[in-house]
Simulated assay, not measured.
Amino acid sequence: MPQDEIEKIAAEAKFIIAGYSFSLNEENQIRVLNLENPTEAAVLTKDGNLLETTMDDAKLALVQSYYLKNKEFIEE
């Protein structure tokens, strides 16, 4: 992924924690991207349930925890 695209995702994120950006996609789902390794991504429901991912289980559990603790910052 080109650096300018990563910077755009980071700029449009609702919040960033530990290098993971959290934003809403067009379907009103949570899109998570590891800004340091953009091959690691996930899509979550607003409740934090997994829809799809390229992360291993440990990283996924970590980002789900980050999201659930901070989801009030993403709600419109």
Score class of each variant (00 low, 15 high):
P38C: 10
K59H: 13
I17R: 07
P38S: 14
N37A: 10
L50A: 09
N25Q: 13
S23N: 15
G19E: 00
G48S: 06
V32A: 07
I17Q: 13
L62V: 11
E52W: 14
P38T: 13
A42F: 07
K59F: 07
N49G: 06
D57F: 02
N49Y: 13
L44G: 14
E36S: 15
N25Y: 09
L33W: 04
L51Y: 13
Q64N: 04
Y66V: 09
K59G: 14
P38N: 13
E52G: 04
L44Q: 09
T45Y: 03
L35A: 01
Q29R: 05
A61I: 04
A61Q: 13
E40Y: 04
N34K: 01
T53Q: 10
N37I: 03
E26K: 01
N37H: 07
S21V: 08
P38D: 14
L33A: 04
D56L: 08
L51S: 14
N28H: 13
V43W: 06
L62R: 00
N25S: 12
I30T: 01
A58Q: 11
N28I: 00
L60I: 03
K59C: 02
A42Q: 01
E27P: 09
E52P: 09
S21W: 02
M55E: 12
A61K: 11
L60G: 06
L44C: 15
Y20R: 08
G48A: 11
D47E: 12
N34P: 10
D57E: 12
L24C: 03
E26D: 15
Y20E: 11
I30W: 03
Y20W: 10
L62T: 03
V63S: 08
L51A: 14
L50R: 12
A18D: 12
E36K: 15
N28D: 13
T53N: 14
S65Y: 02
L24V: 03
A42I: 02
S23Q: 14
E27L: 08
N28S: 09
A41D: 12
A42Y: 06
T39R: 09
Y20G: 11
N28T: 02
E27N: 09
A18M: 06
L35R: 02
T54S: 10
